[in-house]
Design a protein around this nucleic acid. Structure first.
Lengths: 263, 263
DNA sequence: TAGTGGTCTAGACCACCAT
DNA sequence: TGGTGGTCTAGACCACTAT
């Protein structure tokens, strides 16, 4: 039943690898330009004389490499090369904020000529996660923080999620604890008014595959990892006053830091 | 033939998701501790009354999340939690270098009580890649740089690759262009002697799935992305004198930056 | 309604690993 | 040698999308 399988694992390629290779070549050569639709799984199976599952496996390999994306009911498409949003250390600069009145995110997206949208989807008082509590110096067993969840879009495409934790002690009684709209100058202007000008940031960066929920929420194609940034805002008295966990699509976002080397 | 498939996509889970969920729970609860062997695909299929392919799909989901790793001929095992190497902005500090005489990498690994090894696998004069040439301000069409490839190990496990480019103009005639061994104080001590003390760094961070070669070379399990850092060393006169492209396993490495917020 | 991807079944052969 | 994962075949039903 499997007589067409030639020398598995040997000198010649497995059928699935072979199909993947041919498609990869077609993509690289431009025969299948970005945005183009691949032949259907059934068509590929027929063309290459393999079972549909094998053609499917070939497509899975390409998806894992980030070359193609499947759309249920529509087809499989060559992925477009996307512009990268680059978040740099200067995005928190006071000058930038005062000149534009924009949040760091909006400033970055605007700089690239794209349309930014930020949805604050929830604000609640919570017990912060361990790692956050540790960085804020608050008690993880108490409802010691305000949690603000934000979804970030560029041209109506979801690109990242940011969950900010603010010590209740700081947020209590201010718009930080109540209002989705931060007004002119955004979050960091409010912190400054409350006696916490941002003077130093710490960013802990890692990468991983998205959870199922993240993959759905950010419509992340197969084979695209996320970058996770645990960001801590620190004021002029070395007090951490805010921690945000950013999760962003690695294929649409990047980080760009410039910093002095200490003595 | 498919009568056991209940309400696909609906309120109850698909068989593959259900099997994955149960295994995930067993892993989280400690019933399947790190290093434990999962039941074989055939055993899972029998236990849950599904086809072997379905059990296999469940395992693929877990592997994609980084929870388990398959070993051909041996079985599928719960992945061990690994300590993360955290590379911070202070790793280039002059003080650290002068006190320990260690390279940034060795210092970080030693700090965590692990054994570092760095192999310089090649040194050659080359035409630098576009992005590197741009940052160094050299001609990508000319052999204008020295390329040094380094492999980094912790406890004999490969954790990252670093490819450093140095303008030929700077490296010519020095050990930078010839010797694998950089001597006391490593690379940055040599740059300092040549009139390029490192005073500022730029690090551009992104993440992606590894290429096939990287997956082999770094023995990266399925479902683990890499972090790619394009690092630029800049001297006191704002001259870039070195660019290094780091590629590191995301499950074994992290970055930890602290930096001042500019005005 | 027709075509697409998503998932599943049932069974087969192969390559790798330990014994 | 027997058990394991890796791959393949052939066929089925489902859900999503466009017409």
């Amino acid at each position: 039943m499997n007589s067409s399988q030639s020398r598995p694992g040997g000198g010649t390629q497995l059928p699935s690898r072979r199909v993947a290779s041919e498609l990869r070549t077609a993509i690289a050569s431009g025969d299948l330009p970005p945005g183009a639709k691949l032949p259907s799984e059934r068509a590929l199976a027929a063309r290459y004389g393999v079972a549909r599952n094998t053609a499917r496996e070939a497509i899975r390999l390409l998806a894992e490499e980030g070359l193609v994306t499947a759309h249920h009911g529509k087809g499989v498409f060559v992925r477009e090369k996307r512009r990268l949003l680059r978040f740099g250390s200067e995005r928190y600069s006071h000058r930038l904020r005062k000149e534009t009145g924009l949040s760091p995110y909006r400033a970055e997206v605007a700089k690239q000529g794209r349309t930014a949208r930020v949805d604050c989807t929830s604000i609640e008082r919570v017990r912060p996660p361990e790692d956050v509590a540790e960085r804020l110096g608050v008690d993880p067993a108490e409802p010691s923080a305000v949690r603000r969840e934000n979804w970030y879009y560029a041209d109506d495409e979801p690109v990242q999620i940011g969950v900010t934790y603010i010590p209740w002690e700081i947020a209590e009684g201010s718009v930080l604890a109540t209002s989705a709209n931060m007004g002119k100058g955004s979050l960091y202007a409010r912190f400054e008014e409350l006696g916490h000008p941002i003077t130093r940031i710490r960013e802990e960066v890692s990468a991983r595959m998205p959870t199922h929920e993240e993959a759905i929420g950010l419509s992340i194609p197969d084979g695209v990892p996320v970058v996770e940034v645990l960001h801590t805002g620190i004021d002029h008295l070395d007090r951490p006053f805010e921690v945000t966990r950013f999760v962003m699509r690695a294929d649409l976002n990047g980080l760009d830091y410039t910093m002095p080397v200490e003595d």
